[in-house]
Write a protein that binds this DNA or RNA. Structure first.
Length: 828
DNA sequence: GCAAGGTC
């Protein structure tokens, strides 16, 4: 039996399909697909199925000096045991083995990991390696006809990266965490990729903090030829002879303004007409896709997760790619022809097909592992996708269209006029031929109309304006620009850059969007700059890349490279040793600064944002347990301390981060006082804590306008029931037999009053109705998908809540576990 | 409880 091993299940399925001419059958073993045909078996891994780590005796942070990790052994253990077991069971019976992992460095390493797992159970079978740059019939068959050997040097290069990343990351992370006495779950993490990324954000913040604005003035005049009026701007030539619009001196600006205001006409000095070609964009690689999705409002992580879902469902190609050149085997006309059947963008596909030339644009990077992101021939129906998924899918389709479309043509018109010795200019822009913009409406095509004037024309000056302005601090990096910068610097990979940014959020280093660094982040970068400069610069990656190239070409060995790196880290620990206290204190102070609101009104100590045992946030006093002062915080989102302070209490205001529902809560003390004043109507004792703590149920209106029945002891008791958002709520004299609460009636404008009844009964009925809804009630479940789910025994929203996402995803084609989880969240 | 890199 021949065993073929690929990097992922998807590749296994397609390769089996090609090599068996469609005749392969699928067998599931412990959740792993094995494809079989004529004496062959093909199985997909899930990327790395083994991971590097230190031996168990190093796992207790308190018992091991971080510096000891520098020279600790690094071992490999199985991380995907089911896959390893299936692989080894198959390998035992294999007469020969072919490794068909991705054609790149990490793929070679994953291949070597498979090689070693096979050798553990089978010493003799020959193990070959095939390489192909895209999974097409021609390439795959050619590669399998003439297999090669594994490149152990290339794999060793990858192993050196693994070891160096682990040793540096783990040793320094432990050192910083222990020095700041972070004994709980929150550790202070650093690494070769995340720390230089964080430094980018921190450096920008330093520029912003150091920025001092300058005043300047700009002047404008309205010019007219006949009835056509247009705006022109004053400019002059600066000391270096460059055109400048900003006037840095108020007296000069006012003097120029006086001239323009009093002037009656201006004479056209020069007119320049030009035609500009505006080329269509290159095909999508991961970074450019994230950038485009970000202009539609999707954060990087969200954009990637939607793309992964669309890929798993088969609608677009693999979303993790650096490639910006379509491979030869992609036939644009054929794909356009398929897409032309779509009711939403079929017409655009037809128009493109009518053109005589269908040469796609190309980017700079041509890699061999995956094509640029483009739609596949398998088209979803509108109802099969959620709104977000459809928006992203259409983006990918339209980008594909754009790469095949004609350039746009712009007419530029530049007019310079003299007004009493002052120069005025106007730049007009008109779209002559919309070209690719017709099929790709995501770029702006604003025009600026300047009438056709000729040299020597005398124009009326109808109005003059002076605008006082200030220079602005640099802008923070947005997530997509951060990812582009990381790509330029060569840090991270297409598959990990967005994860790195998520990690910075999770670790409490950045907040908000665009991300702003916390005090902790500033302190971590400062510590790294002072003691481990290598770690915060992109140089570490650059040197590692050079070393990896040397290992791959046989000039250096794994041992030499990792030893050099360990020696360097040793020296860093030597200098860190004496400064442990100092570094720790600074980190601790910064941690606290991120959570500090201001003085406690009861005892004068400091109020801090804390987290309750139930996981909800509240404001507590640093003097606890001597001072028990607390204030509630909203239960939606994560609190962030803003720079702005409340005038009444001197406390920092709080913002609640909750994605699209993010809002500014303000001063928690003001909010608490308002709530006390609000005179919330009382319904009765809280069923959860009424007899024990005298909590009572009240009707509350939240800051975001939502209303609910909640316990007066919130946040200590979190019992709550929903109420409708609109209408006046009347509390009747009639009460519920079962729960003893008064029945409620809602009076909404225009509508007849309706009886909501007992809020507990009402909520129970509501939940039951929700459970019994059909699946198509959920956003993102179309008729096609609902049918597939029903076949798997899931026919109502309630059924969906009970399923295991992975199990359902395995059972139903084209449905990912993430997508199931998304539905479950919506069903809640 | 450490990193970064695959993949889901």
């Amino acid at each position: 039996m021949e065993l073929i091993i690929t990097e992922k299940n998807n590749a296994a399925r397609r390769i089996a399909d090609i090599l068996s001419d469609g005749g392969a059958s699928t067998e599931r073993d412990a959740g792993v697909n094995v494809y079989e045909w004529g004496g062959k078996r093909c199985v997909g891994l899930s990327g790395h199925v083994v991971g590097v780590d230190f031996p168990a005796e190093y796992s207790d942070w308190r018992d091991v000096e971080p510096a000891e990790l520098v020279h600790a052994d690094v071992t490999k253990t199985a991380t995907k045991e089911d896959i390893v077991n299936v692989l080894q069971r198959l390998a035992e019976r294999a007469d020969d083995v072919v490794i068909a992992t991705d054609y790149d460095r990490e793929g070679e390493l994953i291949g070597k990991e498979a090689y070693e797992l096979v050798r553990e159970v089978n010493e003799d079978a020959p193990i070959k390696r095939v390489r192909f740059s895209s999974i097409t019939e021609n390439e795959v068959k050619t590669a399998f006809a003439d297999p090669d050997d594994l490149d152990f040097d290339l794999a060793a290069a990858g192993e050196a990266r693994q070891t160096i990343d682990l040793v540096w990351g783990a040793a320094l992370t432990r050192f910083l965490s222990l020095s700041a006495r972070q004994t709980g779950g929150d550790f202070i993490s650093v690494g070769r990729v995340q720390t230089p990324t964080l430094k980018l954000i921190v450096d920008k913040e330093r520029e912003i903090e150091a920025f001092e604005p300058d005043d300047y003035w700009e002047l404008f005049a309205d010019l007219a030829k006949d009835d056509a009026e247009f705006e022109a701007q004053y400019f002059y030539l600066d000391d270096e002879g460059n055109e400048a619009e900003r006037v840095w001196n108020e007296a000069d600006a006012e003097a120029a303004f006086d001239v323009l205001r009093d002037a009656a006409d201006a004479v056209v000095e020069s007119v320049r007409r030009r035609t500009r070609t505006d080329d269509p964009p290159a095909p999508f690689n991961t970074t450019q896709y994230i950038r485009a999705a970000s202009s539609l409002g999707y954060a990087a992580g969200r954009a990637m997760s939607i793309a992964e879902d669309l890929y798993t469902a088969g609608y677009i190609t693999y979303p993790r790619t650096d490639n910006t050149v379509y491979p030869d085997d992609l036939d644009p006309a054929e794909l356009l022809d398929t897409l032309s059947a779509n009711p939403h963008f079929g017409d655009d596909a037809e128009t493109l097909l009518d053109a005589d030339d269908l040469t796609p644009t190309e980017g700079d990077e041509e890699t061999t592992d995956h094509p640029p992101i483009h739609p596949t021939a398998d088209m979803p129906d509108r109802g099969d996708l959620s709104e977000d998924e459809w928006e992203v899918y259409e983006l990918v389709v339209r980008r594909f269209f754009a790469t095949l479309a004609d350039p746009a043509e712009w007419a530029h018109l530049r007019v310079v006029a003299d007004c009493e010795g002052l120069q005025l200019k106007a730049n007009g822009r008109r779209l002559l031929d919309e070209g690719y913009h017709a099929v790709y409406p995501y770029f702006g095509t604003d025009e600026n109309h300047v009438p056709a004037v000729e040299e020597g024309d005398v124009l009326d000056v109808s109005d003059a304006r002076i605008e006082a302005k200030q220079t602005q601090p640099p802008r923070r990096y947005g997530q997509s620009r951060l990812i582009e910068t990381m790509e330029d610097m060569g840090i991270g990979t297409k598959a990990t850059r967005h994860n790195t940014i998520e990690k910075l959020y999770d670790r409490g280093y950045i907040e908000d969007d665009p991300p702003k660094p916390t005090r902790l982040a500033m302190a971590v970068v400062e510590a790294a700059e002072e003691y481990a400069d290598m770690l915060v610069s992109e140089e570490m990656t650059a040197e590692l890349e050079a070393d990896m190239a040397a290992i791959a070409s046989g000039e250096k060995t794994y041992d030499e490279v990792t030893q050099e790196s360990r020696d360097l880290l040793d020296r860093i620990f030597d200098s860190l040793g004496e400064s442990r206290e100092e570094v720790g204190t600074h980190l601790q102070e910064s941690l606290k600064a991120d959570k500090t609101l201001g003085p406690c009104p009861d005892c004068g100590e400091t109020l801090l944002i804390r987290k309750s045992r139930q996981g909800s946030f509240f404001v507590g006093c640093d003097g606890y347990p001597d001072c028990e002062f607390t204030l509630p915080l909203p239960d939606t989102g994560e609190p962030v301390v803003l720079d702005s302070e409340c005038d009444d209490h001197g406390l920092h205001e709080v913002k609640m981060l909750a994605g699209r529902n993010t809002f500014v809560h303000g001063c928690p003390l003001c909010r608490a006082e308002e709530a006390d004043d609000a005179d919330e109507p009382v319904l009765g004792p809280c069923p959860e804590c009424g007899h024990e703590h005298d909590g009572e149920l009240r009707i509350k209106t939240l800051r975001n306008g939502n209303r609910l029945v909640g316990c007066s002891r919130y946040p200590d008791c979190e019992y709550s029931l929903p109420l409708p958002r609109h209408g006046d709520i009347e509390i009747t004299d009639e009460s519920c037999d079962e729960h003893g609460l008064p029945k409620l009636v809602v009076h909404d404008e225009g509508d007849d009053p309706w009886e909501l009844g007992c809020p507990i009964c009402n909520f129970a009925e509501y939940q039951e109705r929700q459970q019994n809804r059909g699946l198509e009630a959920l956003d993102g479940v179309g008729a096609k998908t609902a049918e597939k789910l029903e076949a798997a025994g899931v026919s109502s929203v309630g059924d969906l809540a009970d399923v295991e996402p992975e199990a359902l995803a395995d059972e139903v084609d084209g449905v990912s576990a993430d997508r199931v989880r998304e539905w479950q969240a919506k069903a809640d």
